[in-house]
Amino acid sequence: MTREEELLLEQVTSAHRRRRADGSVQSHPAWHDLDDAGRLAAFDETVLQRKLESAMDADGLSTTARALLGRITRGG
């Protein structure tokens, strides 16, 4: 994996996702710039990161779970 691909992968592992105009969750822009192997690597890395995040959180919540609850409580 090139350095550029690694930086793209790292962005994709974030739980931050924008919303479309219809309110649905949008793909990360960096995901579109990865090839198949990069997308699979990003998937695997995200699985591991969320596991660690859950272990670091007092309530066992990953950043995905926190992002989701944030949207729900804000009514978004």
């Binding site: 739980a15 996702r17 649905s24 969750v25 990360h28 997308r39 990003a42 998937f43 995200t46 995905t64």
Partner: peptide, 20 residues
């Protein structure tokens, strides 16, 4: 369970949307 879709969709976005 979403791994097989990982090359075709951004599974983080899919998972968040599904959980919503």
């Amino acid at each position: 369970s979403l791994r097989r879709y990982a090359a075709s969709v951004d599974t983080e976005a899919v998972l968040q949307e599904a959980l919503l």
